[in-house]
Design a protein around this nucleic acid. Structure first.
Length: 567
RNA sequence: CGGGGUGUAGCUCAGCUUGGUAGAGCGCUUGCUUCGGGAGCAAGAGGUCGCAGGUUCGAAUCCUGUCACCCCGACCA
């Protein structure tokens, strides 16, 4: 591509709205332009990279045996009413009516549509298993779009849906997809990590997320050092320590703690470590009443785990302060399990503390020297807290460290949740109707562009891995309007590289060297060839890898350049 | 949805407190010079001051409403 015919809208100044580096660089390098909140246009250079990533995804999905199709982004409400999600989905699903006043939505996902098509055309076990995928625009009306294309409302997603006669076959395909994802993320040149995940509203059993590791990531990951365990903190389980609780050594004392409401305040005020404090959170119960959740002072509630507890209402709802006052007769800052008027479920760690400090269920007072089983009932225990850095890995191998990640892909074993709801069935070998097992596998294609940039940039701009660069190499001729030798050398090299099938850009805009180099670095071209009279005098081109500290001189031949590119 | 902020030239922003007819830098156009790290000089083009009402002789500036965008939080297949 000749840059004289390929507009680059690069800017020196960083747009004010961009917070994260990938968003800033994508705007500065002219990859995207914002149209509205969470809506972005991909300019030609940005689209080249987006298309390359999509191509890698497509290749690996095909290699893994999945079949590409394309479903509409506009979907009729009937299908969503059938699965029950028309009511379940919140405002993130954009709904509207057509001219006949029929309800539609912009598809946030395609489980309903694929089930609809599958049940039309698939009647026999002989036709299974199948795995369909598409690369299609999705729309989710996020409450707060942010970070450019990292969390936008409209985005490009690869979504795949597989159907199976048995759970075992679903598991086989799940592992097949997992391998395909590992290949895809490896080819992107990204440092990534598959982690155990919560399957969220989509439901289903087994689920893993593929995260691109980056400090700006929105997700927190618990990764075992010295082990293999890795999970999204939302999904990371915690276990009882295995060592029995220490024996009680103190007796209960009531202590005046005026105005000391938080664990930190009480801990400081009474000079006890946070780990010696037990806090009681009050949430709505599954039976409509209230339930107390006991956590160690230094631990945080994991709302997803708590919501899954049979005694707790889902979704998790904290009790209103008025209701707490009514039931306990005190403010939320002074709650504890002693003489507690509601059922209590304790996190494993909280149940292991002896001689602890807790609220006295009386304003401005706490109790010290409290022990489970003696001063209050031995509680029901469960895994309710967020895993913490330094915790032992749940699988017993290694110690947990936190990383931040950007969710680039997610694979699920859905089971029969959607096939059942959508009345999908096929006949097995005995002629009996069977509800197929279903898996779904997503990759956020647009998000990956930003995620890879988060990992690959420097002060001058983006640094693309070869596989997804908009151009692999850029030729910068210096003074080509004055020097016929430079111009000829650049043209010859350009044509030779094109002939060799290399994605090459020739900067024939006649700009000064400084601005050529700045553009080439900002847009992230991985290889640069500079051609000038000085070098040509010695029959040399200058070659610089984007990531390299220094440029080097190579022979002024197309063959020498091709050799560098294949190295 | 709660809290906060911002809308002025293509971009980044000043001007608003204290009302008086629109500014800077970058970018763009033309000319000359320059040409290995975002050039210099000169001359230019370019704005319904988000929108709608109101106050006033007069509103970018004050008041009311509204829309959009951004940030923090909540939420998130």
């Amino acid at each position: 591509m000749r840059l004289s015919q390929f507009p680059l809208s690069t800017t020196k100044e960083t747009p004010a709205d961009a917070q994260v580096i990938s968003h800033q660089l994508m705007l500065r390098a002219g990859y995207i332009r914002q149209l509205g909140s969470g809506l972005y246009t991909w300019l030609p250079i940005g689209l080249r990279t987006l298309t390359r990533i999509a191509a890698i995804v497509r290749e690996e999905m095909n290699r893994a045996g999945a079949l590409e199709l394309l479903m509409p982004s506009v979907q009729p409400a009937e299908l969503w009413q059938e699965s029950g999600r028309w009511e379940q989905m919140g405002a993130e699903m954009l709904r509207f009516k057509d001219r006949h006043q029929n309800d539609f939505c912009l598809g946030p996902t395609h489980e309903e549509v694929i089930c609809y098509h599958f049940r039309q055309d698939f009647r026999s076990y002989r036709q299974l298993p199948v795995n369909f995928y598409q690369i299609q625009t999705k729309f989710r009306d996020e409450r707060r779009p942010r970070f450019g294309v990292m969390r936008s409302r409209e985005f490009l997603m690869k979504d795949a849906y597989s159907f199976h006669m048995t759970a075992e076959d679903l598991h086989r395909e799940y592992l097949n997809m997992r391998e395909a994802y590992v290949r895809i993320f490896t080819r992107l040149g990204a440092e990534f990590r598959p982690v155990k995940a919560d399957s969220g509203n989509i439901g289903g059993a087994l689920s893993e997320e593929f995260h691109i590791l980056a400090g700006s990531g929105e997700d927190l990951l618990a990764v075992a050092q010295g082990g293999t365990y890795a999970a999204n903190v939302e999904a990371a389980e915690t276990r009882p320590s295995g060592t029995p609780r220490a024996a009680a050594t103190k007796s209960v004392e009531k202590v005046a703690t005026p105005g000391q409401k938080t664990c930190e305040q009480v801990s400081k005020f009474m000079n006890v470590p946070l780990t010696g404090k037990v806090k009681l959170l009050v949430v709505k119960g599954a039976d409509g009443g209230l339930v107390g959740i006991a956590l160690r002072g230094d631990h945080q509630l994991n709302e997803i785990k708590a919501a899954k507890h049979p005694k707790v209402a889902s979704p998790l709802t904290m009790a209103a302060p008025e209701d707490v006052l009514k039931v306990f007769g005190c403010e939320v800052g002074y709650l504890g399990p002693v003489n507690c008027p509601i059922p209590v479920v304790a996190d494993y760690a909280a149940a292991e503390v002896a001689d602890f400090v807790c609220g006295a269920n009386e304003n401005d007072h706490h109790l010290s020297g409290v022990n489970w089983g003696r001063d209050c009932a031995e509680p029901e225990t469960a895994d309710l807290r967020m895993i913490a850095e330094g915790d032992p890995s749940p699988d017993g191998v290694g110690t947990i460290k936190f990383y931040r990640g950007i969710e680039g892909g997610h694979i699920f074993q859905l089971g029969t949740k959607y096939t059942k709801a959508m009345n999908v069935s096929v006949l097995d070998a005995e002629g009996k109707a069977v509800t197929p097992e279903m898996g779904c596998y997503g990759i956020g294609v647009t998000r990956l562009v930003a995620a890879v940039i988060e990992q690959n940039h420097d002060a001058n701009g983006i640094i693309w891995p070869d596989a997804i660069a908009p151009f692999r190499v850029i030729i910068c001729p210096i003074g080509s309007d004055k020097s016929a030798a430079v111009k000829d050398a650049a043209e010859t090299l350009y044509k030779d590289l094109l002939a060799a099938g290399i994605d090459v850009a020739l900067d024939d805009r006649g700009n000064r060297p400084g601005s050529m180099f700045a553009d080439a670095e900002l847009i992230g071209i991985p290889h640069r060839i500079v051609i000038g009279d000085k070098g040509l005098a010695n029959a040399q081109f200058e070659y610089k890898q984007r990531r390299a500290e220094k440029a080097e001189m190579i022979a002024a031949t197309s063959a020498a350049v091709l050799e560098r590119l294949s190295a």
